[in-house]
Nucleic acid binder design. Sequence first.
DNA 1: CGTATGGTTGACCCCGCTCAATTGGTGTGG
DNA 2: CCACACCAATTGAGCGGGGTCAACCATACG
Lengths: 249, 249
Amino acid sequence: MRTEGRARKRLPVTDDGDPLTFCSTCAFSSACLAEGFDKSQLSELHVLVLHVGPFARGEHIFREGDPFNSIAAVRAGTVKTYVVDSRGREQVQGFFLPGEVIGLNAIHGARYPANAIALDTVTLCRFSFPQMSLLATRMPGLQQHLFRLLSHDIGKASLLSGDFTADERMAAFIIAFSRRYEARGYSGSHFNLTMARTDIANYLRLASETVSRVLRRFQDEGLLRIERREVQLLDRIRLEQLASAVLRH
Amino acid sequence: MRTEGRARKRLPVTDDGDPLTFCSTCAFSSACLAEGFDKSQLSELHVLVLHVGPFARGEHIFREGDPFNSIAAVRAGTVKTYVVDSRGREQVQGFFLPGEVIGLNAIHGARYPANAIALDTVTLCRFSFPQMSLLATRMPGLQQHLFRLLSHDIGKASLLSGDFTADERMAAFIIAFSRRYEARGYSGSHFNLTMARTDIANYLRLASETVSRVLRRFQDEGLLRIERREVQLLDRIRLEQLASAVLRH
DNA sequence: CGTATGGTTGACCCCGCTCAATTGGTGTGG
DNA sequence: CCACACCAATTGAGCGGGGTCAACCATACG
């Protein structure tokens, strides 16, 4: 019923649907499709895709310190990355939805700098990074695409570093998910948060009690409806307004 | 008397010292030297270097929204990048010392997402990014180097996003500068902060009054001596301890 | 020497954290 | 199908770190 797409029709091997088509939600689809590469190049990219999973909820995809050799695009489910700080508390670094890429911050250092864990049933498309780099030297479009993905994540990482109020952070969180779901073809006004309140709190650097209270108030003020993990946006304008402090349009 | 190195011996043109040697502090020196490329490749990289500046204190190097076409390595001086938030307050994103690279977060989006301003007299080595990408398809070592630089900045950007105390932030700031100066061959125990207190505060997401108070206390407790912008580390062990919460070793 | 800008210090207060108690939802075994 | 246990989420009470506001001080510059 959820993000599985057209997997499962096939055996879990390196391919996906028709051999000349990447899955439409994949972060790399535009790297080839949008730029009109010929069929031989497409299949070259396909050759180094390894379809892995499913990972069950709570299973680790990689752990901090593991040697780095591949990046992966989320195909189905949600991935959370986190580290454990010196006080032993979990610091959530990010959530990754279908089509988004994990492992980019491991290139430098040759080891994963964080843990990645499945929040629900997760399947991935794994790419050997050395092989992909090699291919990128022959496919300028792919190289550009990798540069852009990396560059994008620099900006994303600094979003939450500002000094924002709990309301602004919470609104930005909701709006960002809404946009990301929309970009992948799901509803942006009614969706399911796949993570616990404590995960949201650790990500936003708030106490989970504060997350509860703010969501409660948002609901009382008619900005949204939230029951358990089901969110429905009711006043997107107002939420965007609050979020704009963080997201900057 | 400061970070000028061996510029100024030459006209401000595309070259630097001996035509087959990059300046030793440059972030790209290792891209060729350390990996044993031959002389023809070295000169290819040299061809696309444009030595620009000097910029005077307060001059902008680029502004938010400017079209992106080049990245630049700082050659001398200090660069500050910042944006202005919705409340009209300056949010400092980073400081760049000689040898460090600015503009990497502009690749995605094709426009600079922040302003860059010289904090003192700044000179740069500017590289056309399209040309550099093209060269990188023929120099796998250069491509790897770019990937690593980008990847590194993802991690750097998320450092300050944790919920740390003012003391931890301040200590991490001092230690990080100490290490970066050391890595470039300057003293790591006695150096000059080139930015104002308000810049430090905006970067650490603290009030400038708090920066003053914390530095005062650090001095009273014998961790360092600071007069105006001159810093001298007195108890590096203790500072590293405080900083470790942020820097994670 | 006067003026401006940046830095320091003090007094007060508020947002969000902590601690603690309660509720509710989910899964498990009787 | 219900009873219990367990964990996530909620709600309340109190407090403290760091922000704000304001006054004062010091160094740089004309």
